[in-house]
């Protein structure tokens, strides 16, 4: 079986029939996207690991008890579970608006890279570390829209509904999120260049 050719729908169907290998493929295929989504919301690697586990356990229970709606798509569905759990965590602990940035150093050890030379790995790691940090530094409302649109693939209409704002507000927040990130990346590149090529 070619792992990439089998659709999520077929894998879920196989899993419903008891095929654990199908579930393993689903987890392998989507673990990073779900983990990244949670991590960018909660900004804490250890908490994100716990919430990832909770997310998949909830999915397992739903699927195995026959309550999964096969008409829907697996990834958006599990991302919604992940997002809700991450947001619920903050509401429960009343930490949502005042979350303090964690060190997060452990997170950086888990980044995925496609190239394998040490130098390219190092450059990519630096870039990704900073980008993740820049996302975490965004104002909460901008970060939320960015995570929902970019990593959860929700439409701006869906984001507006979930957030209780107009579509234009959601679009505006996304635009400012991208503009802010752009500024941070530019400043960072400029500082990097000055270090590399001092006068």
């Amino acid at each position: 079986m070619n792992r990439n050719e089998v659709s999520d729908k077929k894998l879920v169907s196989a899993y419903i029939k008891g095929n654990e290998e199908a579930f393993e493929l689903l987890v392998e295929r989507h673990k990073n996207r779900v983990f990244t989504t949670i991590n960018l919301i909660v900004r804490d690697n250890y908490l994100a690991e716990d919430l990832l586990q909770e997310t998949f356990i909830k999915a397992i229970k739903t699927i195995k008890s026959g309550r999964y709606n096969e008409e829907g798509k697996f990834l958006p569905w599990i991302l919604r579970i992940a997002h809700n759990l991450a947001i619920d965590y903050f509401r429960r602990d009343k930490r949502y608006p005042t979350m303090v940035l964690e060190d997060g150093s452990a997170v950086f050890n888990n980044l995925d890279f496609s190239e394998d030379s040490y130098e390219s790995l190092q450059i990519q790691k630096d870039t990704h570390d900073r980008l993740k940090q820049f996302i975490e530094e965004l104002p909460l409302v901008q970060r939320e829209v960015l995570v929902m649109r970019h990593y959860m693939n929700m439409s701006f209409k869906e984001i507006a509904e979930v957030s209780g704002v107009s579509i234009n507000t959601a679009l505006g927040r996304m635009r400012y999120a991208l503009i802010n990130l752009r500024k941070k990346i530019t400043v960072n590149r400029s500082a990097y260049d000055k270090n590399l090529y001092p006068k």
Partner: peptide, 8 residues
């Protein structure tokens, strides 16, 4: 943003 890909 696509490059931010974290692994558990």
């Amino acid at each position: 943003l696509d490059r931010v890909d974290l692994s558990p």
